[in-house]
């Protein structure tokens, strides 16, 4: 059907009259919705691992503020996702497990096959943990952009899965992740551009 015409769909296709409102259920959540919530908890948990590295590695106020903002929003969202899963009797991942799992792994033992899109491998995390000053700042931004892009791809996968993202609460949450992380990527890219254009200050 001509897409332009779709903007002015007229009577015939869509004309309806009010029925006596019947008790209809909103669309049910799907297995993909559950996987999205479970996977996003682990995904968000890694962002917290990354932001926890900031205080000892840079004094830049903008990076610190960025880290704090990410921390607050991801913690809130983890709580929300856990509640969503609990309310539906689904298994609720513990974000700390992700944390310990990756931090205890030796560098070189990548676990990328179990990671959600965009998540840093154990090697990448180790590299980030080793960096200091400007190197850290640039790497942090680069890694967090990769990490956030993974979240966008998780949303796209969800909305691209037949039957999913239909439950209103899942839709609202996916929409929020999409909006917030897009905006944060834009902000981090701009910050990275600025860092790239300045000479590295001397390291302590």
């Amino acid at each position: 059907m001509n897409r332009l015409l779709r903007q002015i769909v007229m009577c015939g296709l869509s004309c309806i009259t009010a029925r006596a409102a019947s008790a209809q259920q909103a669309p049910h959540y799907t297995a993909a919705d559950v996987r999205f919530m479970q996977g996003m908890i682990g995904h968000h948990a890694q962002a917290l691992v990354m932001t926890a590295l900031i205080p000892e590695r840079t004094t830049r106020a903008d990076i610190r503020a960025l880290g704090q903002r990410i921390e607050v929003s991801q913690k809130d969202e983890i709580k929300m996702m856990q509640q969503w899963l609990r309310d539906r009797g689904q298994s609720v991942p513990n974000p700390d497990a992700q944390h310990e799992h990756q931090m205890m792994n030796m560098p070189g033992m990548t676990t990328s096959d179990t990671l959600m899109p965009g998540m840093l491998t154990t090697d990448q995390l180790a590299e980030l943990a080793k960096a200091r000053g400007t190197d850290f700042e640039k790497l942090f931004l680069k890694d967090m952009i990769q990490h956030h892009e993974g979240a966008l791809s998780m949303v796209a996968t969800l909305l691209g899965t037949t039957g999913s993202g239909q439950e209103p609460e899942v839709f609202r949450f996916a929409a929020e992740v999409d909006t917030d992380q897009r905006a944060e990527i834009a902000r981090m890219s701009a910050l990275l551009d600025r860092l790239g254009n300045t000479a590295s200050p001397p390291q302590p």
């Binding site: 769909v9 309806i16 909305l159 899965t161 037949t162 209103p168």
Partner: peptide, 15 residues
Amino acid sequence: TRGRLDCGAQGVSDT
């Protein structure tokens, strides 16, 4: 994304 032209409550499965 569950909104339907016909106001149905069943949602829209296809992406």
